[in-house]
């Protein structure tokens, strides 16, 4: 009897064990090793003494705050624009019209395509030697490809933003669209008969219904963009660059002495990301409840 009870109690933890083990070993192991290196424990290169020097070095570096701000701005703007566009698309695609199924399918195409492939496509499209630039010359809008605005390897990060938008709009949109389709048109119709105009129907009826979907997906987008290194590495300028790129460069450097700094950046990045996500979640909870 007791054994049965014990088995019953252990059932859920046992079922979760494989997943938890992977997370603990791979993620936890990496974290511990990373934290160790960032505070001066890196026996491979003879570092054995605990120190916060690497954190001090990173935090006092002028480029750090610039990079942090750039990273935050990139993540914030990508999330904001993706969410707004996703909502706009979902509002259109929830209706059934001629070709709406095909359009919905096309809209979802970016989801399985890797970010790197998208980045390459964006370069081919918007760089000064890209398709748009050449078309612009062909149409006589610009004299030479050089007259086309710089969108790749630029400080504003236009190509980076475009890459994230292309990938994340459908990601948020699919969830929001599913919410809208499952809700159906009736709430909106009730609101209409009660005198709500189209803006009021969106603001007071549809938006609150979509909000939990928008928040739960946008938080993923924010976390993803905040920690993403390959797109800013491929499409961004060398200075200033985002924190993940900075950490990656230090990590990749043949000089192993830079590794503790890379880890310090990564840890700060993780802490800031966790802080922002908690704040975002709180804000989201407040928004949904009120």
């Amino acid at each position: 009897m007791n054994r049965l009870k014990l088995m019953e109690k252990l059932r859920v933890p046992m079922m979760l064990f494989p997943a938890i083990a992977i997370i603990v070993v791979l993620f936890g192991g990496g974290m511990i090793s990373g934290v160790g290196q960032s505070v001066g424990y890196f026996p491979v290169i003879g570092l054995n003494n605990f120190t916060l020097d690497y954190y001090r070095d990173v935090l006092t570096d002028d480029g750090f705050i610039t990079s942090l701000w750039l990273t935050f701005r990139l993540a914030f703007l990508s999330t904001l624009f993706s969410s707004v566009l996703a909502v706009a698309f979902a509002l259109v695609l929830r209706h059934t019209f001629r070709g709406s199924r095909l359009l919905t399918l096309i809209y979802q195409v970016p989801i399985p395509i890797p970010h790197l492939v998208v980045a390459t496509g964006i370069v081919l499209l918007v760089s000064q030697s890209g398709l748009l630039s050449r078309s612009s010359v062909a149409l006589g809008l610009t004299q030479t490809p050089r007259d086309f605005p710089v969108m790749v390897f630029d400080t504003a990060g236009v190509a980076i933003q475009l890459t994230f938008l292309w990938k994340e709009v459908p990601f948020i949109g699919v969830v929001v669209l599913a919410v809208l389709k499952s809700v159906g048109p009736q709430y909106e119709e009730i609101a209409r008969t009660l005198g709500a105009n189209s803006w009021q129907r969106f603001r007071y009826v549809l938006f609150p219904l979509m909000l939990p979907g928008i928040l739960s997906t946008s938080i993923i987008v924010f976390a993803f963009v905040f920690a993403n290194y390959e797109i800013p590495l491929l499409l961004g300028v060398r200075h200033p660059t985002t924190l993940p790129v900075m950490a990656f460069r230090n990590y990749q450097d043949p000089d192993l002495a830079l590794r503790p700094q890379a880890m310090a950046i990564s840890m700060i990045l993780a802490v800031v990301a966790i802080f922002l996500l908690v704040a975002y979640k709180r804000l989201a909870k407040y928004a949904v409840e009120s």
Partner: peptide
């Protein structure tokens, strides 16, 4: 338009 008619509907569901 519906919103200006003052014809209010009560649905059976939702």
């Amino acid at each position: 338009p519906t919103e200006k008619r003052g014809a209010v509907m009560v649905f059976q569901k939702h």
